[in-house]
Design a protein around this nucleic acid. Structure first.
Lengths: 344, 344
DNA sequence: CTGAAAGCGCTAACAA
DNA sequence: TTGTTAGCGCTTTCAG
């Protein structure tokens, strides 16, 4: 003991070190550190003191191997750049806050093969559950998830067959709802502006639902334009300008997300165009950002916060062996927010 | 074998299962699966086939314990709600892409005690390195990090004493630079609008640098206002309105972030105020979002992308035993973007 | 209330 | 090129 308490070596401290420093068996030290079983007040104190003095940090790797319990929840999402996903992450984190569980993120960039790799990677840590965005996966991914023997919650979308449990909204229905609202308001010449992302299935489904509902009313999209990359706000501006120069008769623009919608809104106002009289606008997502624009953009809430919370809750419940109050498919209902750019 | 290949049990497959299924020793199976050592083509194939057929997913917990190597990098940041952090995350992820390393995030909500907890939690997984936002930590956190025996990179800020390595900008200097640019442009009556976050040390330092540089020129902030929560764009509007009603003589507003700056900008334009003639504006962060506003807001790039990339590189280099090209303190230089709201 | 023994699933190090 | 033997640091289980 004469050379002090600071370990000069690079080797991490072990239970054994604490055991020796406190004169208590490893087993009891372990019990104290995990608050398990009965330990006398004195031994408890001895152990805690020693652990703190040495700066002991337990090794979860070893713990997990021995106990076969890993308190991690794998969360697999496309990206961090689309504000939507950090937001679900936040709500998952919040919901898991007062459980033992800890979320761990993996990114797929919307590429199925990358998703497969990430899932493999994450499953090899034997997490307690998986939350993954979307219902579309490679067959290998589905097999992995099915065989993992842990709860799997697919989020954001319910249009499809879940592996285990799905929590989200129907994007097809969301598209349909918006189409109906637009038609009901009397708009007839509709343009669509979106992202060029064949692998964004939710955007695709919204688009399909949208055109389908229009078709049912004998209406058709008269112009459309897709972008990729760059500042969404700016793209919204540019695309709106381009589209209106090309198709000046349009009286409504449906944007696949709020940011490009906001860009279009700013542009049209600058042109002195009357919104929603001359042209109506709508976006999608209901991002908080919209509060503060000169005019409130019509949009539709994607229920991201509830989705994250419910998904996390399902994993937490199933992990702790509780009967979950949710079924195999939890469909939330997005609400249209008319804002000030869509007549009622 | 007659009951098929799909495991009905909940127990995960082990190396041993693959070993038995392929008639090759566990050790060799392990070698094949990790591409280590020489293995004959045939055995390799046998093993790979068996592994794929069974759907074997290696157990990294056991692997890590045995090899004492964990390819995780702990990334500890305040939150996901401030776009800035998902952005650094993205660049860390990208930089780590073609290494063995995998980032794992932990959130602190700007609370030092929570940071301490998160660090403890993460360190207990024995990661290969830690990237943590900021230089301010509890003494216990610093001790943990110091004793962890792994590379620790503190990011976003260099104003202070790093535990190991710091990569970022000097926010004090950033504040000073902006003050100088504003004075040089001839503005004299300056208001400050920011977030009410005593624990956001970077914002605080910018503010300090800002007022310090003003003071040196015999100038003083004439009004200030702080907000918390809500839509930043909207808050920017409201605060700007409130401040100008209170202090109509101001000729410059310095916002602590771009979103509230954008709110202010939109509001002032609606009021028909001449920017930057009558009033100048500046924000901070250089978020891409700004492209697309009716007028380009003056701001200052916080170098987030480079910071993430460099931090990740440092960890990757040190982990692979390479000599890193970076020193103990990497100070990047933010550049003022004058945009169209600050006279030159 | 405390301790001793066994082993989680894998890999390092050595042997064949 | 392949296999064998010991653990990695902890927890489970069972005995005191």
């Amino acid at each position: 003991m004469k050379n002090g308490d600071t370990p000069e070596t690079t080797r991490s401290l072990t239970l054994r070190d604490v055991s020796e420093a406190s004169g208590v068996s490893e087993m009891t030290v372990s019990r104290v550190l995990r608050n398990r079983g009965d330990v006398s007040k004195e031994t408890r104190k001895k152990v805690l003191d020693a652990a703190k003095r040495l700066g002991y940090v337990p090794n979860k790797i070893a713990g997990a191997l021995a106990s076969k319990r890993v308190n991690l929840v794998a969360v697999v999402i496309p990206s961090m750049s689309n504000m939507v996903f950090p937001e679900v992450m936040s709500s998952i984190s919040a919901e898991l806050e007062d459980t033992e569980l800890q979320p761990v993120v993996g990114l797929t960039n919307y590429v199925p093969e990358q998703e497969e790799k990430v899932l493999y990677e994450m499953l090899s840590w034997r997490p307690s559950g998986v939350i993954v965005a979307g219902l579309e996966h490679t067959e290998a991914s589905r097999a992995m998830l099915r065989n993992a023997g842990i709860p799997v919650v697919e989020i954001m979308d319910v249009d499809g067959e879940p592996i285990d449990t799905a929590v989200g909204i129907s994007h097809r229905r969301a598209g349909r709802m918006m189409a109906q609202a637009i038609l009901k308001a009397g708009y007839e010449h509709i343009g669509f502006l979106g992202t060029k992302m064949p692998l964004d299935h939710r955007a695709r489904k919204r688009f399909e639902g949208f055109t389908e509902a229009l078709a049912k009313a004998g209406c058709e999209i008269e112009d459309q334009e897709f972008y990729s990359g760059g500042s969404a706000l700016k793209k919204g501006r540019e695309m709106t300008q381009a589209m209106l120069e090309r198709s000046p008769d349009l009286d409504f623009l449906y944007f696949s997300n709020d940011m490009i919608g906001a860009g279009g809104l700013l542009y049209l106002r600058e042109q002195g165009i009357d919104i929603p009289g001359q042209i109506g606008l709508a976006g999608f997502n209901g991002v908080e950002l919209l509060d503060g624009l000169p005019q409130q953009l019509a949009t539709m809430d994607a229920c991201r916060t509830e989705i994250g919370a419910i998904a996390a809750r399902i994993i937490a419940d199933r992990t702790s062996g509780q009967e979950s109050e949710y079924g195999k498919r939890v469909e939330l209902t997005p609400k249209i927010q008319y804002g000030e750019t869509l007549k009622r």
